[in-house]
Design a protein around this nucleic acid. Structure first.
Lengths: 229, 229
DNA sequence: TGTACATCAGTGAACGCGCGTTCACTGATGTAC
DNA sequence: TGTACATCAGTGAACGCGCGTTCACTGATGTAC
């Protein structure tokens, strides 16, 4: 009994158009500057029409944040999935480079999710799942290594690390990684995004000349540090 | 011929009051939400009165950015200056902890300078100097170590690093640090601010339980990494 | 030291603007019988 | 298959709001002679 349902399709399409337009505007101005009226104007529609699709401005923003996390996550997953599973070095390099490139290509979407929190806005739970996707790609590479080269957990460092980490959460997607390496792994994750933020937000301006080369240098070191190279 | 110049004094005081009020509002809402009218209202003044002190909103923002960099810089300098010069370990720990604590105490000022760039706003040159102060504290600690334990510069790694770093700039305040360690030093700097941003912006929410302990863990590792412990 | 004038801080009204959101409506598209 | 009704997308006017900035002004504070 499935009818063409052109209305449902049209609706979905319209939602996509709105988000795409908003994203385009986002890449010109910033996140806090995004206005429903401008999105509507850009689409040659009345601003009130948008309320058929999003209850208010916050809901649009939430959708954009979700999309940003998912887009970054999917890009990284896809790029990394192409590499042979056993080639951990390449998987790590590809994954981290994809993160950086995505950020450079979508600077305002990156800032939307990794920059200053939007004042007054509080992210709903759904975004947390989406946010985890990129991180999981990196975590899985590390875990795969230790799955193939099992390493005993040192009880004393397990205990020590459990005091400042949410060990159960981390072990949920990195069950084979010893505590010591979890510390380094979270450090590497921080470093990658710290780098990208510093590059994007202009803090490397007087110290780095070739960002691409330096990034490769950094992530290569991180790969060693984390024990997978 | 120096008169009391109460007018000049009053003016200076008024500028400070305006900035303090703006800072207070900043810590409630965010940077982009800051409005001249609200600052004036908060001071029981007309908004037009503020134009005696700042030509426009951007100028107020610039002043706040400058103050933030300088305040963070001065705090770090002061805290670190108390430690015996030869005690590099303690200097490093004190300096990095001061950075984190300052950020926690002034989250919106931190976001103002290390978060997403404000759309449409372009920082004037003066801010660059102010921005360098914190970084220099860290750099000086590393340099002091290598000044006391001189290490020959390996020509091949010098050459390699010069390809992606602005070596001359970095050597200006770290003249004794070999290229290899400059890479690690900039990495450590990135890591410290990456950590603070992740903590403040909520990205560690599901992995870190005790931020203070984990931070100490991280900066201790960085101290070793950078060769000064 | 006293007076005349210049400088400056702050006022209050006004400008034009763009915003988010609501509401009663029109007309097209889908659904049920 | 054809008709009557329900659903939905989009319109256009209107709301109340707070914003940055300008301007002619008043009154107090400083300066020069």
């Amino acid at each position: 009994m499935e009818k063409p349902r052109t209305r449902k399709v049209a609706r979905e399409l319209q939602i996509q158009t709105i988000k795409a337009t908003a994203r385009r505007l986002l890449d010109q101005r910033g996140a806090s500057e995004l206005s429903l009226r401008e999105v509507a104007r850009e689409m040659n529609q009345t601003s009130s029409a948008l309320y058929r699709y999003f209850a208010n401005r916050d809901e649009l923003l939430t959708a954009l944040i979700l999309d940003a996390y998912n887009d970054l996550g999917a890009s990284t997953e896809d790029a990394e999935a192409v590499v042979a599973r056993s080639n951990r070095r390449e998987r790590w390099l590809v994954a981290t480079r994809t993160i950086r490139r995505w950020a450079l290509q979508h600077p305002h979407e990156y800032a939307l999710v990794y920059g200053s929190p939007i004042p007054g806005y509080h992210a709903p739970v759904e975004t947390i799942v989406a946010a985890t996707r990129v991180t999981n790609v990196l975590g899985r590479i590390i875990n795969d290594h230790f799955q193939e080269h099992p390493t005993a957990f040192d009880p004393s460092s397990e205990k020590r690390v459990a005091e400042f980490f949410e060990l159960e959460n981390l072990r949920f997607f990195m069950p084979n990684v010893p505590a010591e390496m979890l510390v380094k792994g979270i450090g590497a994750w921080t470093q990658v995004f710290g780098f990208v933020s510093f590059e994007l937000f202009g803090h490397y301006e007087n110290s780095v000349r070739d960002f691409e080369a330096y990034f490769d240098e950094v992530v290569t070191r991180l790969g060693h540090d984390v024990g997978i190279f």
